[in-house]
Design a protein around this nucleic acid. Structure first.
Length: 694
DNA sequence: TTAGGGTTAG
């Protein structure tokens, strides 16, 4: 190419542009690009040089974290192009697959969902999507992670028609199904994957073990783990951790101990996370002394202890009401240089509220270094309370902002999709994906993955849920600073107000922050809902559910738990099974808290037999009952005058090695009184009888 | 990819 006698080759331009971008001179790079395009006569080079230059500029911008600039160029190019890829034809300058993929990956990693969608839609609109297998994989992964499983599945269907899925595609799909809580589906897809000419790799195994453990499918997780080792893969420490966590969450303490020993036998060194899982698990499995001993031991050695470890033990002290020790621990944590995060602070503040120990909070504040956080929390609290005392605002009750129409029908309407199911039996097995059905109809009998076809075919038909379900329970973040009130800060304040029962204050806070454009997350809604249900404000609770739907905020296991709790308190435990069906149909699962809530709701409604049945179902599904389960069953049976059954559950509890707690004592006091009453009755009857014959 | 919100008792 020539300009005023100077000859520059295309490579020189590329290097020049690259150098400018690397040194942060983006404007200069773009000026050069503009100059080349508009001022130079590139002659025969135009058709390949310009697209080439644009593509390398795009890639360089993305790699130098200039996503905004990259997007501007990206859309400009797409809008000015005529439809062909890579500049073939009349000078169209499309970004090539490499550049598009770079942009998409960067957007996914940055969590820029809206921008990602814009790019995706634009590519589709221009008819240039699909790019390649990698591009498809990125999109399947991204949409699935953002809760749009339907998009992922239809993309997969498209890929299959083109015959281009690879192992990464399958792994992404399995991951995305697990994230949506559809672990059962993921397991079926996995079985089919093995028959489709692909071999699972350690990524596949890791995803499945994680998904199964999280959804209490410990038997599945154990099986997959063995298969992984049998096939010659060496599971990473994380995989051991997933399984350990799963056992402890399912209250399978023995299996957890075996797994921990197996780890050592396999020559895998425990990590800090392993010990954190173990300490927390021991606390939750009724072994607080062992947990605390382990913590002290590690702490003495100065090994495998981090901020999370301290947080776990502090939280346990808060639960037990040992506030003095909790504060001491936080002081030690501070002294050792660990950050005291929002989780710990929230728990501490709430515990102090509950026990009316204000002086403890003052002391806490003194010990939290670079903590502008505590003063800010307290300042906010004061400001909010003052503003609520103002007669003008006090007259305004904020609960109506969540009010919904009415009763349990409203609940069912909210959680129901397009009334797809006619079968509403309470049999939870009935909602497992029905493979027989999926293979009938228009599915290709010869497909290598009929179940995935089935899933893909459901998309856009009648499987759309009004409220999507998510396995993810929301990320945990350290505070970002006192001036940025992000959703985590809002959640912390909300927790504090809700713990005090200050619903109006919480609603006001909710209103302020949503007005500021802060998007609530599942955690926020669940907390609000739970407080409304506890106070018996059911319309407001269902109103929150309604708003979750409007904001397409995915529900999770805790949401469903609150719904069941609410229905129980409304005296409509009979509707619990319909809700349960819905949860399982959505791919959800039952965890220990859910079982306990259900057993309580059924028991309090006088449905003791159903409660007992659920207890058995819980055990056969691989979850061991815990102290809450046994306490609930003992209480429910005592109050139903089934004293022998109550005693039976007490014995079961002790035989299972489940240590009673202070709630058990209360329940037993009640049981004792009931037994006394019965004795007294019997005695007086005897007396009456003997009187008769004397 | 481990700690918070959702379960019993009061």
């Amino acid at each position: 190419m020539k300009q005023d006698g100077v000859v520059l080759d295309p490579l020189t331009f590329k290097m020049l542009l690259d150098a400018f971008i690397k040194s942060g001179k983006f404007d200069s790079a773009l000026e050069i690009l503009d100059h080349v395009e508009n001022e130079l006569d590139l002659g025969e080079h135009t058709n390949y040089l310009m697209p080439d230059l644009y593509n390398s500029v795009l890639v360089a911008l993305v790699r130098n974290e200039q996503l905004g600039l990259a997007l501007t160029i990206f859309f400009k190019l797409l809008d000015s192009s005529s439809g062909e890829r890579n500049g073939e034809g009349n000078g169209g300058v499309f970004p090539n697959a490499v550049a598009c993929n770079e942009v998409l990956v960067a957007l996914r990693k940055a969590g820029m969902k809206d921008e990602f969608k814009r790019v995706f839609d634009k590519l589709k609109e221009k008819g240039v999507f699909p790019l390649d297998t990698y591009g498809y994989n990125i999109c399947i992964h991204a949409f699935g992670c953002w809760g749009e499983l339907g998009v992922s599945l239809s993309l997969f269907k498209e890929m299959k028609e083109k015959g281009c899925p690879d192992l990464c595609t399958y792994n992404s799909l399995v991951l995305v199904l697990c994230l949506a809580g559809k672990v059962k589906d993921a397991l079926i897809v996995w079985e089919e994957l093995k028959g489709s000419g692909h071999e699972p790799d350690e990524i596949t195994y890791g995803i499945l073990i994680h998904g199964s453990s999280k959804t209490y499918r410990t038997d599945d997780a154990t099986k997959i783990f063995s298969e992984m080792q049998y096939n010659g893969f060496r599971p990473s420490i994380n995989v051991y951790n997933f399984l350990l966590d799963g056992y402890l969450k399912a209250r399978k303490l023995n299996e957890a101990c075996q797994q921990f020993e197996k780890m050592a036998d396999d020559g895998v060194r425990a990590s800090c996370w392993t010990y954190n899982i173990l300490i927390d698990g021991l606390f939750r499995n009724g072994r607080p002394a062992a947990a605390y001993a382990l913590f002290c031991d590690l702490n003495k050695k100065g090994q495998f202890v981090d901020g999370i470890t301290y947080s776990i033990v502090t939280l346990q002290f808060c639960r037990e009401g040992r506030l003095e020790e909790a504060i001491q621990l936080v002081e030690e944590m501070e002294a050792r240089g660990f950050v005291v995060g929002l989780v710990t602070i929230t728990a501490l503040v709430i515990a102090h509220y509950r026990h009316g120990r204000w002086e403890g909070i003052e002391r806490l504040m003194k010990h939290i270094r670079d903590g502008n956080l505590m003063p800010t929390v307290l300042k906010w609290k004061a400001t909010m309370e003052a503003s609520m005392k103002d007669p003008q605002s006090r007259s305004k009750d904020f609960t109506p902002m969540f009010a919904a129409e009415g009763d349990f029908n409203e609940v069912l309407r909210l959680i129901n999709s397009a009334d797809r199911r006619s079968d509403t039996s309470g049999d939870t097995e009935g909602v497992e994906p029905d493979k027989k059905d999926s293979l009938s109809g228009d599915t290709d009998q010869w497909s290598s993955s009929p179940y995935m076809d089935h899933l893909a075919n459901q998309v856009g038909s009648d499987n759309h849920s009004f409220l999507p379900f998510s396995l993810s329970r929301g990320k945990r973040v350290l505070e970002k600073g006192t001036n940025s009130f992000d959703i985590d800060m809002v959640n912390t304040y909300l927790s504090i107000f809700l713990a005090k029962g200050k619903l109006s204050l919480a609603c006001k806070l909710f209103e302020i922050f949503t007005d500021m454009g802060v998007d609530p997350v599942g955690y926020t809604y669940n907390s609000m809902m739970s407080s409304f249900v506890k106070k018996g404000y059911f319309n407001e609770a269902w109103g929150v559910l309604n708003e979750m739907g409007d904001n397409t905020c995915p529900t999770d296991i805790a949401t469903y738990n609150v719904i069941i709790q609410g229905l129980g308190k409304m005296g409509r435990a009979d509707l619990a099974s319909a809700v349960l069906d819905k949860l399982l149909e959505q791919g959800g699962y039952l965890d220990i808290v859910m079982y306990n809530t259900l057993i309580n709701a059924l028991g309090k409604a006088g449905r003791t037999d159903e409660a007992t049945k659920l207890f058995q179902q819980m055990r056969s599904s691989g979850i061991n009952p815990d102290v809450v389960t046994y306490n609930t069953l003992v209480e429910v049976h005592s109050k139903a005058d089934r004293l022998k059954d109550a005693y039976k559950f007490l014995k079961l509890m002790l035989n299972a090695g489940c240590p009673p707690n202070h709630v058990t004592d209360t329940t037993l006091d009640f049981l004792k009184e009931e037994i006394e009453k019965v004795r007294y009755q019997k005695a007086s009857m005897k007396l009456a009888n003997s009187d008769k014959y004397s």
